[in-house]
Design a protein around this nucleic acid. Structure first.
Length: 604
RNA sequence: GUUCCGGUAGCUCAGAGGAUAGAGCAACUGACUUCUAAUCAGUAGGUCGAAGGUUCGAUCCCUUCCCGGAACGCCA
């Protein structure tokens, strides 16, 4: 498993804390120990705080005494200005030159430390996106993509070997519905002839199918009052259009040439549309699987397992597996031999393992499918695969609108392409508003960067398992805890660096020791957290902590920016140190944003 | 009915058993002749769903209950 003990993940580059660790280890005869430390809360008179409550558990000693002893030790340390025990906390005020030396003055080390030691690096396969080919992508898919792509990027950032795969659900009754509607109402039209994006074009026939189905259901209920209480599903095959879709599915399974031809044509339109949307978001996969391929391996596996007695045949002819009292009985093949949803996932899981032999497989799929994955993992174990212990469902919650759930039938779905364009237009006008006379040459590109940054950040900053509320009005603002806030800090840093470089003075000795204000110390204290933040986010497979860190780092920079002049700072050694601070903070922020797959504009 | 996930400021959300429970938005006050105001500084806003329990200490762990969402398909 990915899971490792926490102490191996924590990094604290501050020398005096590391020395304290060694001191305590020696004092108590311990081989390893993690010092719980973090930035000191404002107003407590320190840079870094060590929490001796937790430390006391490890050393089996009195927390207050330990704090007093630690403070005594640290007070005598050459890097420490002042160390004070308050209750069981030790608040350390570090000499500025030492604080910066261990943090922003050595940003290369800080960035490098996020990488896990070799023995903790794993080969991980992550599946995400997994669209259906009957309609365009919507806000729910955007959350999936944002979570999936940032997870892949994060795991790579900390040193894992990651394969990103997509699984296209290109087969089944849903695509047949679009096909039937196209045959009935489409004539010879194509996305090109209609000037429509392929996925939207096909999606419009899915909608037409539903409209026609509703009409036929209403007619049916009017003409036969005795069945008017039956559900839409029960009456599906009693409608002409419902039967047509079912026939289409059977023909597809039998490999009917004409059906397959139409299927290929319509899928190619949809996939071309997806490519465009993916491209705009920056989604990339190492490998794309198609359900129409993988379900065959699933079916073979099921037949094999039946022969071996792992699965059994029910009296009605269906192939099933008994997963015990908790999960119950699960059908793998219908009585007519056709495969169900889980059958293809069995095939896909095997294919992925055969092709990449990952130590761990992850699925980024909505939490409504938890049961499905519990069943899938149980089946893989039942089939005897040892690696089935290392399959993981990263379940995320739905995206709701202020009006409630998104419902495609009620037309309340937020379309991905529309949302991208709307946000880009707003970012564009906001940029223009600020630009005044000097309209930037790269206006559109800049607007796109800001818009995508805002959207992705908004979806990533929440814990994946929460159901999130998407308020279109609020999402469109670029102020406060947003991606553009972090991007803006980067843009200001870039601007300072540009101006400083055009105003060259000979490189001087860096006056880190003079960087002693609360704002300057705070930057280094926060930056020290970065490696641990990344490692922890990777361990939990949750990027929201990284987003929160970047906001905190950017906030610290904004305060510093306001209070501490850089270009006009005197003496020159202080100016040089502050400039170097800007560079270092800029590198951390852009490294973090890049890890979230968010770009940074040169200027805003 | 059973299982899972939530319930923290008016709203959206953070909170690694520990200090005085934090951000953003909304409200209010102040700051652009300055390295970019997509910013900063400040004010106000809380029975952490309820009750028990464990603990030196619980928003966090345990039990029961209340409220919201989801799952329990030969749909995907």
């Amino acid at each position: 498993m990915l899971s490792v003990t926490l102490w191996r993940l924590m990094i604290m580059a501050l020398r005096c804390v590391e020395d304290l660790r060694v001191f305590i280890c020696e004092a108590f005869g311990l081989e390893s120990l993690q010092i719980p430390s973090g930035p000191c809360p404002a107003g407590m008179g320190g840079d870094i705080t060590v929490n001796c409550f937790r430390l006391a558990g490890e050393t089996k000693s009195n927390p207050m005494e330990l704090a007093t002893r630690s403070a005594e030790y640290l007070s005598g340390h050459q890097d420490v200005e002042k160390a004070e025990a308050v209750k069981a906390f030790v608040n350390i005020l570090v000499k500025p030159e030492a604080l910066h030396r261990d943090s922003l003055a050595d940003v290369d080390t800080l960035l490098a430390e996020a990488r896990l030691p070799d023995d903790l690096q794993r080969k991980i396969l992550v599946e995400y996106s997994a669209p259906n080919t009957n309609k365009p992508l919507h806000l729910g898919h955007i959350r999936n993509n944002a979570i999936g792509m940032s997870l892949v990027s994060l795991l790579r950032r900390i040193g894992h070997d990651v394969t990103a795969v997509n699984l296209v659900n290109d087969r089944g009754i849903h695509i047949c519905k679009s096909m039937v509607a196209y045959l009935l109402f489409g004539g010879n039209s194509t996305p090109e002839s209609c000037g429509q994006k392929g996925d939207h074009f096909v999606g419009s026939y899915y909608v037409k199918f539903d409209q026609e189905l509703k009409r036929q259901l209403a007619d049916l209920r009017d003409s036969q009052p005795d069945i008017s209480e039956s559900s839409d599903e029960d009456l599906f095959l009693s409608t002409e259009i419902g039967r047509m879709a079912q026939d289409m599915l059977l023909k597809w399974e039998q490999g009917d040439l004409e059906t397959r031809g139409l299927w290929k044509r319509m899928n190619s339109w949809v996939l071309a549309g997806f490519e465009e949307t993916y491209g705009r978001m920056g989604v990339e996969f190492d490998r794309t699987y198609y359900e129409s391929d993988t379900y065959l391996l699933g079916r073979e596996t099921a037949e094999d397992a039946l022969a071996k007695g792992v699965f059994f045949r029910r009296p009605d002819g269906a192939v099933a597996v008994d997963l015990g009292p908790k999960l119950g009985e699960k059908v793998i093949l219908r009585p007519d031999g056709t495969s169900v949803y889980i059958t293809q996932d069995i095939g896909t899981t095997l294919m992925k393992f055969e092709e990449f032999s990952p130590e761990m497989q992850v699925w980024v799929v909505g939490d409504e499918q938890k049961f499905h994955f519990q069943a899938l993992f149980a089946i893989m174990k039942r089939l005897g695969y040892r690696w089935a212990e290392d399959l993981h469902h990263l379940a995320y919650g739905m995206v709701n609108l202020p009006s409630g759930r998104m419902k495609s039938r009620e037309g309340t779905v937020v379309d991905a392409d529309d949302l991208f364009s709307e946000m880009a237009a707003l970012a564009r006008s906001a940029t223009l508003e600020r630009a005044g006379e000097n309209i930037p040459e790269d206006l559109d590109e800049r607007a796109e960067t800001i818009a995508m940054g805002a959207l992705k950040f908004m979806l990533i900053k929440f814990n994946p398992r929460t159901t999130v509320m998407f308020d279109p009005e609020a999402s469109v603002r670029f102020e406060g805890d947003t991606g553009p806030y972090v991007q803006y800090a980067c843009a200001r840093i870039n601007s300072i660096i540009r101006k400083a470089e055009s105003n060259i003075s000979a490189p001087l000795e860096l006056g880190w020791g003079a960087m002693a204000s609360e704002h300057e110390r705070r930057l280094s204290a926060t930056a020290l957290q970065y490696p641990s933040v990344l490692r922890r986010a990777g361990e939990m497979m949750d990027c929201s902590g990284l987003a929160a860190f970047l906001l905190a780092m950017a906030k610290d920079f904004s305060s510093f920016y306001r209070e501490c002049p850089v270009i006009n700072a005197q003496p020159d050694s202080l100016r040089a140190a502050r400039l170097e601070t800007c560079r270092a903070v800029g590198r951390i922020l852009s490294d973090g944003l890049a890890t979230l797959t968010i770009k940074v504009p040169d200027a805003m």
